[in-house]
């Protein structure tokens, strides 16, 4: 690492110290809400400082198991996220290979038109999308939650670039054996693209897991909510008289799986997110 070679003067120590303090500040809110989640909600209404004292209780988590729809929402989120991730990767690999290797007429024009789609934010088409799914009577279905997320051009873009970087000679040999184009793709080229697929999969997974606006307006039946929307719905009550402890237990419960996954796969997650951002 480059910076190792330079000495560590005073200013360097100040920099490190301030970042360490910042890191503590970064962590405090997390610790705080975990604390709240172990407190009786009514006690918090009467005395806001109760969080610093005993007794602590598991009742919010117990309530969570009984009342909340978190289980259903978690299931919905998993269905949507996993399906979307698998489909995005599959479709992007196919299209990426197509754009990289098949020289159909007008290919470059079509590819540029697709690239221009990178500039269309989903937020700008949300109203007409809602109308379309109205017309098809398809809101509150998994299809509605999944399909619009498959149209983003980022995956195609990523895979096209990756396939182009793979030398053509690797495929030439197979071509002599008269293998079909799909077999060449499937058996020879695709396995080489696994790193890019992993990047795309992780990025899509995160993106889809955290999607908010589209599920908010499309999933209007509580049993079709995703985790994000379900949690959003319950927190409209945060400044009502009670339930603070319960809400924080929800946040902890819902946030934990992603944090654990992240800690296990952080190298890949960071690479995927950074790679996607740079594109």
């Amino acid at each position: 690492m480059a910076s190792k070679t330079i000495a560590r003067p005073m200013s360097e120590q100040i920099l490190v110290a301030s970042v360490v303090i910042l890191a503590i500040a970064w962590m405090v809110p997390l610790v705080w809400i975990v604390g709240l989640s172990f407190k009786n909600s009514l006690e918090l209404v009467v005395d806001p400082n109760a969080v610093f004292r005993f007794p602590y209780t598991l009742e919010n988590y117990a309530d969570l198991m009984v009342t909340s729809n978190l289980g259903v929402w978690l299931r919905n989120t998993l269905i949507v996220t996993v399906t979307q991730t698998v489909l995005v990767v599959a479709i992007s690999c196919l299209a990426g290979y197509g754009f990289a290797r098949i020289d159909f007429p007008g290919r470059n024009l079509v590819f540029i038109l697709v690239l221009m789609g990178l500039a269309i934010p989903q937020h700008a088409v949300i109203v007409p999308l809602h109308k379309m799914f109205n017309d098809w009577q398809m809101h509150n279905t998994f299809q509605a939650l999944i399909l619009p997320g498959l149209a983003g051009p980022f995956g195609v873009f990523l895979m096209t670039a990756y396939f182009r970087a793979i030398p053509l000679e690797i495929e030439e040999a197979a071509k002599l054996d008269n293998a079909s184009r799909f077999r060449i793709f499937w058996e020879i080229t695709l396995p080489l693209a696994v790193p890019a697929m992993a990047t795309l999969a992780i990025f899509t997974f995160l993106h889809s897991w955290n999607d908010y606006l589209w599920p908010l307006i499309s999933a209007t039946r509580p049993e079709m909510y995703t985790l994000t929307v379900g949690l959003a719905a319950t927190q409209t009550n945060i400044d009502q008289s009670e339930g603070l402890g319960y809400l924080m237990a929800q946040a902890v419960f819902a946030g934990l799986p992603m944090l654990i996954l992240y800690i296990f796969f952080q190298k890949y997650v960071v690479r995927a997110v950074a790679g996607a951002a740079i594109r």
Binding site: Y212, A254, M258
Partner: peptide, 19 residues
Amino acid sequence: LFFASNVLSVTIVTLIWRA
């Protein structure tokens, strides 16, 4: 640590910060 909050969804982040 600094990257961890990135993986949380907006609803969880706002729950935390509203608190």
